[in-house]
Every structure is written in C-alpha cells, then in structure tokens.
Design a protein around this nucleic acid. Sequence first.
DNA 1: CACGCAACCTAACAGTCGTTCGGTCGGAGG
DNA 2: CCTCCGACCGAACGACTGTTAGGTTGCGTG
Lengths: 206, 206
Amino acid sequence: MAIETRYNDILRAATDVIARRGYHQASIREIARAAGLSLAGLYHYVGGKDELLFLVLDRSLDTLLAGLDRAQAGARSPEGRLLALIRTHLDFGFHHAAALKIINRDWELLAEPRRSEVAAKRQAYVQRGLAILRELDPHGRSGDELLSATNLLLGMLNGIARRPFIRSGDDVRSLAGVVGALFLYGFLERSTDGGRVAALGGEHDG
Amino acid sequence: MAIETRYNDILRAATDVIARRGYHQASIREIARAAGLSLAGLYHYVGGKDELLFLVLDRSLDTLLAGLDRAQAGARSPEGRLLALIRTHLDFGFHHAAALKIINRDWELLAEPRRSEVAAKRQAYVQRGLAILRELDPHGRSGDELLSATNLLLGMLNGIARRPFIRSGDDVRSLAGVVGALFLYGFLERSTDGGRVAALGGEHDG
DNA sequence: CACGCAACCTAACAGTCGTTCGGTCGGAGG
DNA sequence: CCTCCGACCGAACGACTGTTAGGTTGCGTG
C-alpha cells in the first residue's frame, strides 16, 4: 500500500472521528483504529494530536480555497462570482460535511503557532467573500459594513450547509440559487424558482 | 450565602469555563475552582458533568425563549416580530456570549435523554422563527422552503452575534436594523441607514 | 549474505479525568 | 446537653489520556 494512501487513510479517519466526537474526546487510539493502525503505528506518520488536527484543517481549507478558485475562474460577472462562492461552500458542506464541522467548531482548539496559520487561511476565505460583495455593492458601503455583510452571508451558508438540508448534488445547485437570490434580493422577493438569479447559473461551467 | 446564590455561581462558572475551553477540556476541578468550591463540594450541588452541561443549556435556552416572548409581545406586525427576534438574538449574543457559544457548539455532546430535551427547546426556537417567516411570506412557500429560510436567518444571526461585531447595546439596535433589512430586501437594496426597516423599530417597546 | 531503514508493533510511562468514600464543622431541634 | 443534617472538604479510586521507549518484521541495496 502506497505511503500516500496510508496518509490519506489517516487523515480521513481523523476527520471522521474528530467530527463525530469533538477534538478533545476523539482519542488518538480511536483514530488509529479507524485508520487500521496501532497506536504507535499512527505516531510513525504524525507527530502528535495537535499536528493531526492541523493537517485536517489545513488540507480541508486548501480544498475549499482551491474549489473556490476553480469556480471563480468560470464566472464572468460579480453575481456569477457570488453564486460560485455559494455553490462551492454548499458543495463542500455536502461532500465534506465532517471537515466543515471541524473547520467551524474545532479550529480554535489548535495551539499556537499552528492556530495562526489556520486563522490566516480562514481569513483569506472571508476576504474572497468580502471582495465579491465590494464589487457587487451599489451603495458604497464601508469596510466594516461589508465585513458584517460577509459574515452574514457565510453564517447563512453554514446554517444550511448540513446534510438535513442537502441530500444530493442537485440540491446544491437549486439551493445555491435560492440562497443567492435571498441574499441579493431579500426574503420578500420571489427566490425559489427561475428568477433573475437562476439564470446566472448558466454562465457557470461547474 | 443563600443556596440559590451558590447555585448561580456554579452555573455561571460552568458557563464561563465550558465556553472558553470546550466541554471535554473543561474539567470539573476547574469549574469548582472558578465557583469558589472544592471538587467534592461541587458534587454536593450537581450530580455530574453531564448534568452541569444540561443545566447551562437548559437555563440559557429558557432565557433566550423568555426574551423572545417578551419582545414578541410588544410587536404588532410580522415585520415587527421579525425585528424583535433579530434583536433578541443579537442581544442575547451580546449579554450572554459564552452561553450562545455553548448552545451552538457543545449541545450535541450531551448524553441522552437530556440531549433530546435540549433539542426540543432548540427546535421550539426554530419554530418561532419559522412561524414569523410564514406570516411574512408573500409567495406561499412550502414548509421545507420556509425551514431553509429560517435556518438561513438564524445562521446569519449566529454569524455576527459575536463580540467583534457587537461592542455595545447601541450596536445591537443598529445591527438588528441592518440584518432585518438585508434579510427582507437583500444586499442590493440600501440597508445601512433609516430605510423602511429602521422605522419598524418605533413600534417596539424594548 | 549483511546491512539499513521504513513500517509497524507491544508495553509501559506519567498525568489527568470524573466520580466517590469517609470524613469535619456549625447550627437547628428536642 | 445530645443528635441530626446540610454544607463542604481531602484523599483516593479506576479508567483513560497523549506520548515514548524498545522492539520485530520485511524489503531494497550493496
């Protein structure tokens, strides 16, 4: 078995166990068992529990950011870039539910200096959202206001990026349209079917 | 010292320590120390760690729901009730930041049957939001769509109900207006100053 | 064959955890 | 006075934690 495969097994096992039990309750023994290794066998690959959490977070955030880059590349308007971000986030929540849970719940438990490193990647993600809202904003909002709006948007996404709401890849696409329309035009506008925003999906190559 | 005071001390200490360290990392010894008791002295009042987490969650959710009731009573329109919910939530996040953190992050760690009991109170809160959106909805959305929208709204609120965004009681009032306007009319509408929604604040007696 | 090294193991370490046992103390009731 | 009881404490229990020391394989290389 190739070493990289083992490495992936370990990270996948760690992601599952930590997401299910929480970081502190997830014992290294249980992660090792889930990865098909003994306790000391796991220590042959990773330096410790803190490093394990870091690897999970770092790799997940890289996946999320890379997915965002790929989706942004196919969008030619600010609205398209917004929809691309929404789709990427919901898609990540669908395909990597455990990782998203860890990103939102357990990242603060990292020790320095790894915590700062992960915080920087988290902030980079927020900045992508903020940049999109800035070019979308017709009112010249201040940086603080745009940051608040960005966190409102990301909070919305985390509020529904969970399995009870997303059961299939089709759900991701339709739900992304709903979220985008609701964010841009509000709850009082029609936002559940082929309105203005659904058409934006056409320019996206995902 | 009255027994109820001691009880409050214990719950306040537990809330602080659990919010800061996370449930599993928060040791009963540290909570006892923060409450000014010995380890065994704490066990004289509560049956165990799981019960401690339950008491914190149960009492916090009661406070949140009671605050919602009080705010709803002073609102005479659906929009007013929505703004009341938003204000209540942000206000709770401002005055009970630690409790809100535990509600959102640690409640799943409760063991049955207490977990179901807390889940019911959480769901009751979601239902309040859903009922408001139902009477507000001009499009006859389905129950599923309304539930999604409710979770989008609550996700928004949790996304900014943290101290970096709310530094004073005035921030709560102004931010509530911004959030309400953004949710109802969307990001593309003007939502940061005295528009339609700010006027809704006038009918609220909070 | 001999060597080295990666891959993995068993077994133990010291520390912390939640919980409990067996108290002490002071005030109220008879 | 004695007794009882709630409030509280020190010390210990067994279980579990992250980590490491010290192996044992098995394969690639010279």
